[in-house]
Amino acid sequence: MKIKNKAQCGSLESSDLMVFVEPADSLKIEIESSVKKQYGKSIERTVKEELERAGVKSVYIKIQDAGALDPTIRARVSTALKRGSK
């Protein structure tokens, strides 16, 4: 999957997250979360798994986390990537 456009998905309500994607020449992941110290690595691992599942190698992806659970992160990343690929 190739990211052709800027896209976003999610919200900043509690238990959700915002995902922003943009076309890029390489992979860059940025994570903002009030629990980054405890869960930053875990969020990054989940994001990378979803990128791999979608076959996306180059993208700028920014996460603003509001306490989302793993299934929410997976879904929001996946939707943002699909929206960005259209």
Binding site: C9, G10, P71, T72, R74, A75, R76, S78, T79
Partner: peptide, 8 residues
Amino acid sequence: AARELVGS
């Protein structure tokens, strides 16, 4: 977004 969230 909703269908992916529910599915996930």
